[in-house]
Amino acid sequence: MASEIDDVRHEAAVLSDKVFRRLSDFVQNEVGIKMPPAKKTMLEARLQRRLRKLGIGTFEQYSDYVFSPKGTESELVHMIDAVTTNKTDFFREPNHFDYLTKHTLPTLNEVNGAGVMRPLMLWSAGCSTGEEPYTLTMVLSEYGERAGGRFSFIIIATDISTKVLDKAKEAIYEAEKIEPVAMPLRKKYLLKSKDPAKQLVRIVPELRRCVRFRRLNFMDDDFGFRETMDVVFCRNVVIYFDKPTQERLLKKFARYLNPGGYLFMGHSETIGGLNVPFTQVAPTIYRVKK
């Protein structure tokens, strides 16, 4: 790649307003993420690593490469990985898991047999590096044990970033990441590294088998699911979209949810002011209208 680019400079490249608009417009159109001028410094910093990796000296050259046939094939996915936000934790917003076990699961079992007559289908939308879906595997496994073992589930976990999906599939985490996990659950569902110096843990195989990871772009017209879902967790994701994009996305979620299915959103997100087919049942928790 470096041999194809002339005048490679070693000093940090500067992102011009013109190139920022070109890249930010693409990011919003392609993945729905708002990129206002205030995000310019962030975008510049994150893409510097891609320029160094490719041996490209300027953002003008980089943008031309990204939108070339070769770049579209090989670089777009890396650019999207660089600009997406992937912060997550185990047992983030724990009240959601309490509501799930105390209200959602019993209700769905009674209404349509989800979990007992057939597997419960749950979608972790925007799963990042896997902490959310693996938290859900622990919560649902514990619920199943309390129900006498007569409970089954499948979790579909999606993200647009191939980088975070690769980490999620590995299911290996630094010890500090598991601080929110209660000790009984750590002993039951986490394997320690054989090398004590590494301070790593891995999700047990039984839970890893419960999660199916897929790359998915929320802006796609068809998500490609054959399944319909009972529960969707999409938390701290739609906040990055503008209102028209939020509305379109939530309507798509409704199409993939069974009647009466549940949507869990982040603590700073709301459907207020949006024309979407959901009814609020608790703070940041909604049911699709039947």
Results as ranks from 00 to 15, higher is better:
Leu140Thr: 04
Asn275Phe: 13
Val231Tyr: 04
Glu75Ala: 00
Thr284Trp: 10
Ile178Cys: 08
Pro94Trp: 09
Phe153Val: 02
Ala45Pro: 00
Phe153Ile: 07
Glu30Tyr: 06
Val83Phe: 01
Thr41Gln: 12
Ile155Pro: 05
Pro36Glu: 07
Phe59Asp: 00
Val231Met: 04
Glu269Arg: 11
Trp123Thr: 09
Val281Trp: 01
Ala157Phe: 11
Thr88Trp: 03
Met265Gly: 05
Gly32Val: 09
Leu47His: 00
Glu30Trp: 08
Phe223Arg: 07
Thr137Met: 08
Asn236Thr: 11
Val83Gly: 00
Arg50Thr: 02
Met229Arg: 04
Arg248Gln: 12
Pro69His: 11
Ala182Val: 12
Val281Pro: 05
Val238Pro: 01
Ala38Leu: 11
Phe218Cys: 07
Lys169Ala: 13
Ser161Pro: 09
Gly130Ile: 06
Leu207Lys: 03
Ala12Gly: 05
Asp98Arg: 13
Ser268Asn: 07
Asn258Tyr: 13
Phe253Arg: 01
Ala13Gly: 04
Asp25Phe: 01
Ile155Gly: 03
Glu11Asp: 15
Leu165Trp: 06
Arg248Asp: 06
Gly55Phe: 09
Phe59Glu: 00
Thr101His: 01
Ala82Lys: 00
Leu108Ser: 02
Phe153Gly: 05
Ile203Pro: 01
Ala157Trp: 08
Thr228Arg: 14
Tyr256Asn: 14
Gly71Met: 09
Val31Arg: 04
Glu145Thr: 08
Asp166Pro: 01
Glu75Thr: 01
Leu100Cys: 06
Glu4His: 14
Leu190Ile: 12
Glu227Asn: 11
Thr85Ala: 02
Leu43Met: 15
Leu257Glu: 06
Asp64Cys: 02
Asp221Ser: 11
Val19Gly: 05
Asp81Ile: 03
Gly144Ile: 13
Ala2Asp: 15
Asn112Gly: 14
Thr58Arg: 13
Tyr134Ala: 02
